[in-house]
Design a protein around this nucleic acid. Structure first.
Lengths: 189, 189, 189, 189
DNA sequence: GATGAATGAGAATTCATTCAT
DNA sequence: GATGAATGAATTCTCATTCAT
């Protein structure tokens, strides 16, 4: 092979895309992404056939990174509360450390350019949560409180928490604690 | 002025914009909005100076409509739980009845085309909640659980609930109940 | 209607397209066509939805113009020879007077951007020839010499003739005569 | 030079170019030609400095092949009619057997990328015809019927004939006969 | 020599906005 | 005021050509 596709370059394009999409939304010009990545405009298309593919790959990359971050060091043998807390802390931590990626993911999630397939793949990556959520909601006699619903609630409450932390970083601890309690009491009763 | 600006036409444009933005995002062409509204392309610009103004006015209109819907019949003299429940039911009800407006509002909210000023105006419209939320969180000894935070949690949990209802309309009752319990227990302990 | 689509402008774009396509082939940039027509780049697309549509309309326009030119003053009551000669003279005349249109039509004809439908429409416009050609070939005992074949031969010989005239305009008369004789003797024996 | 340019590879590229140009016209991407030839994109440019050179070489190669095919077994000592017939049969035969090369040559001929020099070289290759054509037109008292004109007529009538054969291969015999008679009677009177 | 990634100048098309009617 | 044609900057994507490997 003459010059193999460079993983570094691919990553640089995705990182640049995250920044630019965070700032300008999914309508961010590919030219700006290329510039931010330090490559030629055309190079974007040797790594991603179309802009839509780039956006979908970006979505997957961010969500996968989040999933990995959240699951690292997961205390599989611990109690439900400990395991939920682990997830929570990691989620809040990753989100606080990567505000642009979080913003980009949000822009992507609401856009219609992310395919059903991509959303499925991401859902699959978070499938592991459902078992944990099942344990959480087990005692509650609430028909609507399915594990999937609980899982989405965790995400929604966490996102809200991260946003407040972003606005007032000094109160990160209290907000994180309040968010977790809101989720925990809300779901486990 | 022989022919004054018509409120009907303005409303038609906003309604059309909600639909088209829900479907295509904020990059929806003004020409498509005009067509959906049954007016000429140029007419959009006699009612809204620029597309950005149209988007901001749309955002305000939707949020104001939601706010009005939520506050209608507010039982000012009732207990905290009853008042919260009122808000909750109205919120879920309005959201379920207006999926396109909700989707449009979401697209608008994440876009960078809604000005800080617009966001402030909306926040102001929901300011009334904070008093109620203060009552909710009063007993809890949680520094981070401010009324503003509780208010955002209500919104986040409600949006999640509406989404699940949209996917499974038959289970609207159980989801609404589960969502409310999650919020209530989460915030009041 | 605010400002109706202008037939003049449409014609100007088609005329410009003929010139530019003659010079650069079907890959002629629409921007150049617009410039040659004295309109903005975008205007081309208010008259023709896509470049392909422009090319097809151009093909139809040129062929229709040729067909009209050839049939003007057709001596319906004259003998076969007189009618063939009429067609021939008009064909050579129009072709010699419109070298760019002829060149453009040739570029278009060999390109794959002219649809089958367009080709059919053109064939239909020249359908009238077949009756005349039938009279021409009637006496000959040559299975392969169908009216359609004779019609194509007329076109091929005429095009060749026009090309020689284009190179040596001073010998237009002799070339035209030689071409006609070649066709006439060749087809009627 | 350790590894000399390979004639096989050069030929493969030209053959591939014929196919791809036949299908896509002169705007066929060099990358597609490379792929069809089974070589790398860059390799095309070690055999042909530019795309224009490739196209010109392709044009020359096809026309030379045709010329060789037509002249093979030429009955130099036979009568004019026998020699013309030989040319005719070979021309029709080669054209029928190589529809893609014929189509490619047509695309190339109308494009502006074939240089005057290339056209001259091809004309030179067919110069031999002129002597034969001179014999054909000798008796006719037609100023315009020069040998060069007769030569072009032969080409035009043959191309038309081949096209009809391509559409109805079963009637190859009658069409070839009719085509030849049209040329022969047309030119020799 | 062969390879194919990298480049950046176009190319077709879209679209907010203007303005003649 | 209403209309929609006209505008041209901006956008995604293509492709001949170069050059590191």
């Amino acid at each position: 092979m003459a010059r193999p596709l460079s993983d570094d370059k691919r990553t640089a394009i995705l990182e640049a895309a995250a920044e630019v999409v965070a700032a300008l939304g999914v309508s961010a010009p590919t030219a700006k992404i290329a510039k931010a990545a330090g490559v030629a405009e055309g190079t974007v298309f040797t790594y991603f056939a179309t802009k839509d593919e780039l956006l979908n790959q970006l979505y997957l990359a961010i969500k996968t990174e989040l999933s990995d971050a959240v699951m690292a060091g997961y205390p599989a043998g611990g109690g439900v509360d400990r395991r939920c807390r682990h997830i929570w802390d990691r989620y809040i931590g990753w989100g606080s450390r990567h505000p642009l990626k979080r913003k980009a993911a949000r822009q992507l999630a609401v856009s219609d350019r992310i395919t059903g397939r991509s959303r499925e793949v991401v859902a699959e990556a978070f499938r592991g949560f459902n078992a944990l959520m099942r344990e959480c909601v087990e005692g509650r006699a609430l028909e609507g409180l399915t594990p999937e619903f609980a899982s989405s609630l965790l995400g929604a409450v966490a996102e809200t928490t991260i946003e407040f932390i972003a606005r007032e970083p000094k109160r990160a601890g209290p907000y994180s604690e309040a968010g977790f309690q809101a989720f925990w009491k809300g779901v486990t009763g």
